[in-house]
């Protein structure tokens, strides 16, 4: 799920940036530092939408670096248990498959894949139904439901299932080519 929220951060800026474009430099650094990171608390920071305020800088003794407290608005993405996501399959093996929904890695184990789909080995390992109409392989897009999340300080990992109504492949990579 996506949230728009206000966060704070202390930015360390090198003295060489002190000059007429200090503010721009600060914002650039903020974007570079923050966007794409993951905090266990808020989830993945997708994009900064606005910088609300930059506080007074404080010179670090000895180094010359300055710390600026910055408050900014950003869009964060945090997966939840029970949430339904669309994801791209990245790897298929006999234990199940991995998929990515943006920055989030999701693992769907083989027993959470519908029983009528079987693992096929080969250079393009995949899960296929007996009549071959549905195939899950790398780069397939699937709709899955998250049934478990593991949130570390800097990482979020999810377990999903496609063994439920309206879940499963939503496009066929072969057909798209």
């Amino acid at each position: 799920m996506f949230f728009h929220m206000v966060l704070e951060r202390n930015l360390l800026l090198h003295p060489r940036h002190f000059g007429p474009h200090l503010r721009e430099k600060l914002v650039m650094k903020l974007m570079k530092d923050v966007e794409g990171t993951c905090s266990g608390r808020h989830g993945f920071v997708v994009a900064i939408t606005a910088v609300d305020g930059i506080g007074k800088g404080e010179i670090r003794e000895g180094t010359g670096f300055v710390t600026f407290p910055v408050t900014y608005q950003c869009v964060v993405f945090r997966p939840f248990k029970g949430e339904v996501l669309e994801a791209v399959v990245t790897m298929v093996n006999k234990m199940g498959f991995f998929a990515e929904a943006g920055p989030v890695q999701i693992f769907v184990s083989s027993h959470l894949i519908p029983d009528d789909m079987e693992f096929q080995t080969g250079d393009m390992p995949n899960y296929t139904t007996s009549d071959g109409s549905v195939k899950i392989q790398s780069d397939s897009e699937v709709r899955l439901k998250i049934i478990g999340t593991r949130v570390d300080a800097t990482e979020i990992f999810c377990i999903g299932t496609i063994k439920d109504d309206f879940l499963g492949v939503i496009n066929d990579p072969d057909a798209a080519v």
Binding site: M91, K94, M95, F107, G148, T149, R150, F157, I159
Partner: peptide, 16 residues
Amino acid sequence: SALDVLQLISPTGEHF
């Protein structure tokens, strides 16, 4: 648990 598997993938990606 399945939540740990990210670290357990074998180099070939075949199994854990």
